[in-house]
Amino acid sequence: MIIEAARLSGSNLLSAASRSVLFKSLGLTILLLIGLWFGLGELFAMTAMPWLEALLPGLPDWAGWAGTLAAIIAGIGLALVLALFIAPVTAAMAGLYLDEIAEVIEARDYPADQPGRPMPLGQSIRQSLGFLLVVGLGNLFALVLLIVPGINLVAFFVVNGYLLGREFFEFAAMRFMSPADAKRLRARNSTTVFFAGLIIAGFLSVPLLNLLTPMFAAGMMVHLNKMIAAKGGGLSRQWREA
């Protein structure tokens, strides 16, 4: 079920029906990451650079290369930190575009089913901000664990697998039920949702491809919700009859 949901979502990424959402999601994701890059660069310039400039005059003349080396190290550090921000940015994008992605998938792959109900704009923004905060804190925790050999990579996959799986699944489920029911549905299928989240975390770990994570993850969880519902473990009777 999980592999099939991932396969269907992957095939949806470049379909003609999804192209408009893809370009919007990809464009905004890139703009946010560029903004973060410059913001982190400014933060470094305001904090670390004054200390570095105060240190360098006391060094011998031949040590001028230290400034260049420090700039290179800082650039690598900024890139690593930015990589950890991709997950929270992905989370924010999901809240903005999940309904559009879901509508395309539901109309194309499940035309006989009752369509989902888009989240009100205010609720969608609140969910996105909450998602951004939760995933951001989770990845900050994973960043701390980077200094622990053998745990760093595991921490990245476990943290993002759990958080991304949980939040994307509940986002998709809330098109058909209340937030409380979506949480209960996720809890009943927690193992399935976690392993689906690990696939999303794997997708997120691939450079450049990870820019498509909002589309892939949202699509995958829409399919997974549909598959769980088809097995009788998803939509409540009351919702089906509504």
Rank of each mutant, 00 (worst) to 15 (best):
L26E: 03
L26G: 01
L26D: 03
L28D: 13
L28K: 07
T29Y: 12
T29L: 07
I30G: 03
I30A: 09
I30D: 01
I30P: 04
L31K: 00
L31N: 05
L31Q: 02
L32E: 03
L32S: 03
L33P: 00
G35C: 03
G35W: 02
L36E: 02
L36D: 01
G41F: 10
G41W: 10
L43G: 15
L43D: 10
F44Y: 14
F44W: 15
M46W: 15
M46V: 14
T47Y: 06
T47A: 09
A48M: 12
M49S: 15
M49N: 15
L52D: 04
E53C: 06
A54N: 11
A54I: 07
A54Y: 09
A54W: 12
L55M: 08
L55W: 08
L56R: 13
L56I: 13
L56P: 01
P57W: 08
P57K: 03
P57F: 06
L59Q: 13
L59C: 10
P60L: 04
D61V: 15
D61G: 13
W62F: 12
A63N: 13
A63S: 12
A63H: 14
G64I: 09
W65C: 12
A66Q: 08
A66I: 13
A66W: 00
G67S: 08
G67N: 00
T68Q: 10
T68K: 11
L69W: 09
A70C: 06
A70E: 09
I72T: 07
I73F: 03
A74E: 04
G75R: 01
G75E: 10
G75H: 06
I76P: 08
I76A: 15
G77Q: 06
L78N: 11
L78F: 04
A79D: 12
A79E: 10
L80V: 13
L80K: 13
L82N: 04
A83I: 15
F85G: 09
F85W: 15
I86T: 04
I86E: 12
I86Y: 15
A87N: 11
V89L: 00
V89Q: 00
V89R: 00
V89D: 01
T90R: 01
T90F: 01
A92E: 05
M93L: 11
A94K: 04
A94P: 09
A94S: 15
A94C: 12
A94F: 08
G95H: 00
G95L: 02
Y97N: 06
Y97F: 15
